[in-house]
Design a protein around this nucleic acid. Structure first.
Lengths: 184, 184
DNA sequence: GAATATACGGAGCATCGACTCCGGTTACAA
DNA sequence: TTGTAACCGGAGTCGATGCTCCGTATATTC
């Protein structure tokens, strides 16, 4: 049931297309054309469609890759840093990275194909959150879904209402204060 | 320089199209086809394009209408209710109304044509916020842009990560706590 | 250094959606 | 009632985009 390894040029092209897709969909959104991706990757359209039979497949692959990167980053932070700081850092990094690749923000929640990578991300995020709670950096009466939701919401607004860094930081400050308060 | 009044049927059709546009773009997003709007309005495509020469014009008209409604609601609340409650109510209403008409959330910040209505909304929102601050319901070291941004962010996430009402309420609770805290 | 399975490129096809055009219809004034 | 300007409907045009097809090229194996 194992598929034989790809030919060298095919493997390279696949990686190229994935990189180009990340760039193009990241800046122009999912509506960007497949041809644009092919151009940026320096390959023919036929090649793109051989590797990813459908545009949706390509989008899923790009999204999944991105989700996996975030998941890895979350795990890395969980293993090495002070719990409170790790949580804070991850949250801010996700938000900061959103504008240049809005595609992620738009898919972070879209079950279409990237489901597994998505739930792994959520799980890694959950670990980050629990550690922060155990360390007293985040109050205990909140759960992962709502905190994750806030992160995504702010990420999305980053393209528009929260496009200015100073304003975005203030918004983040409000949320972090809300995640810290003890009363109620 | 005054344009003569529209014929009765034309006026009716225009209103119909606007209503249909609100529904269609609200549920399917700005990518929905003009033909779908025409169908839902019960008119021919030609009629839609006569009233709104461009799809963008139609979108702008729909958005503007929506923004004006929100602006009016903000003013209404500012005039009649307890400052803290008015702010809270408006914030929650906007978020609650977002999923069924994501088009607004997507345009609440888009300068394209709806600029004037947009800034009027922001102004009315600013009044709501300042009143709440004066009444001690919201801390004084936050300004309208970041609070508005939070509202939009949560509105957007409402379609996805914050689609469940219970989760959304918890997220809102966190933000309101953050807007209340006094320390720092 | 063949032989061949793999992979490539890009012209071409089919579809879809924005927008136009014009023959037919209707509201409204006189 | 009738004349006419205003309006309507929807078939048709045009450009864009997802996807296919196949002749050509190249990596890999022996």
């Amino acid at each position: 049931m194992t598929t034989r390894p790809l030919r060298a040029d095919a493997r390279d092209n696949r990686a190229r297309i994935l990189r180009a897709g990340t760039e193009v969909f990241g800046t122009e959104g999912p509506a960007a054309s497949t041809e644009e991706v092919a151009r940026r990757a320096g390959v023919g359209i036929g090649t793109v469609f051989r590797h990813f039979p459908t545009k949706q497949d390509l989008l899923n692959a790009v999204f999944t890759t991105r989700l996996e990167q975030l998941r890895d980053r979350a795990r890395e932070l969980a293993a090495a840093t002070d719990p409170g700081e790790a949580f804070d850092t991850f949250f801010r990094e996700v938000v900061a990275g959103a504008p240049s690749k809005l595609a992620i923000a738009e898919s972070l929640t879209d079950p279409t194909g990237a489901a597994e990578a998505g739930s792994e991300l959520r799980e890694a995020f959950g670990v980050l959150l629990e550690r922060a709670q155990a360390a007293g950096a985040v109050r205990r009466d909140v759960a992962a879904p709502e905190v994750f939701g806030l992160m995504i919401g702010i990420s999305r607004a980053t393209r528009s209402a929260l496009s200015e860094a100073a304003v975005r930081d203030k918004a983040l400050g409000v949320v972090f204060d809300g995640l810290t308060t003890r009363h109620r």
